[in-house]
Amino acid sequence: MSDHDIVSPAPESEAELAFEGALRPRSLAEFVGQTRVRGQLQLLLQAASLQNRTPDHILLAGPPGLGKTTLAMIVAHESGRSLRMSSGPAIQHAGDLAALLSSLVPGEVLFIDEIHRMARSAEEMLYLAMEDFRIDIMVGKGAGATSIPLDLAPFTLVGATTRAGLLPNPLRDRFGFTAHLEFYDDAELERVLERAARLLELDVDRGALAEIAGRCRGTPRIANRLLRRVRDYALVHTSGSGDRRGAVGLDAVHAALELYDVDELGLDRLDRAVMKILLERFDGGPVGLNTLAVSVGEEAETIESVVEPFLVRIGLLTRTPRGRVATPAAWRHFGVQRAGQTLFGDDL
């Protein structure tokens, strides 16, 4: 078999891929949560349709797992356009972007994930492409270099970023609409889980759904992942085969999430490792980010972008000019005794 031969996926893999696709809503009406953003997008797409033009460029900003990629697919689907997908890290030269833009068909939707990670030279080329649907190709080097203008087919750029502050102002200003996605509340996550459970043909008690929703960190991607782990646990630990099993209850949810190190607040292994190091080794802080990262054996960027936002949001950690500090709620949650103090009293 040569390196270029294509191996067809096994039927099980095809079924799993089909399920992954089915989990994604196909329309704004199916999309759960982000009510304000859905209404704004609906208006933008309808106005473009009535005027028979491509929709304005759209920037989707927010933490990972809230539905930015799904919304980009919905924009293409609801506007009746094809979708081209790429990512910022894959566009490291202006030539990469030029090849991508010149291959677009009229009206196509281009989705660039993590757009803030594009190369600076590509960003500067994108300014002209977004505004005038044109790029300038440099031919030759030095004094003999010439610029050749290349007209592009009208397109809609949908950019997604988890760090909108890293986008340069000239690029951010060229988006006709910027959507800021917010974390989900428990009621919205329950609706996400209900839909996923139907697709999994899994009967889950209402109380069990609520328990999973409370441990999802406000993120649909995590909700779907935890539901699948609960499904796996129920499948393995329920006797019988071929018969329809009873509803998955709280006991199964508790056992499955304990097995996968997800506690009642939604903290995982890395979250707890960071907090316990902060509480036990550094007496609650303050401690610098790099010191904290080295202590748990992780990159500082991972701690800052993945762990800290959730710990700050639920009130277990604060950031100060001197470093990271554990809150009184953290001491209570982990049951760790601060040096020279008891676990009781108002001073905790």
Rank of each mutant, 00 (worst) to 15 (best):
Q34V: 00
T35N: 14
R36N: 05
R38W: 05
G39K: 14
G39L: 06
G39I: 12
Q42A: 13
L45P: 01
A47G: 01
Q51F: 13
N52P: 00
N52A: 13
N52V: 13
R53N: 05
D56P: 04
D56G: 12
I58S: 05
L60D: 07
L60N: 05
L60H: 09
P64Q: 01
G65H: 01
L66G: 02
G67A: 07
T69Q: 06
A72Q: 10
M73Y: 11
M73Q: 15
I74C: 01
H77G: 05
E78G: 05
S79I: 02
S79Q: 01
G80Q: 07
R84A: 12
G88A: 12
I91L: 10
I91M: 02
Q92C: 07
A94E: 14
G95P: 08
A98N: 08
A99I: 13
S102R: 06
S103C: 03
P106S: 03
P106R: 02
G107I: 10
V109D: 10
L110V: 15
I112D: 03
D113M: 12
E114P: 09
I115T: 04
R117T: 06
R117A: 08
M118N: 10
A122K: 12
E123H: 12
E124W: 02
E124L: 07
E124M: 06
M125L: 13
Y127V: 12
A129R: 04
F133C: 14
F133R: 13
F133G: 14
R134Y: 02
I135M: 11
I137P: 00
I137V: 11
I137K: 08
M138D: 07
G144V: 03
G144M: 07
A145Y: 02
S147E: 08
I148Q: 00
P149I: 09
D151L: 02
P154C: 01
F155I: 07
F155Y: 07
F155N: 04
F155M: 05
F155V: 03
V158M: 00
A160G: 08
R163H: 14
R163G: 01
A164R: 09
A164V: 10
A164K: 07
L167N: 05
P168I: 15
N169C: 07
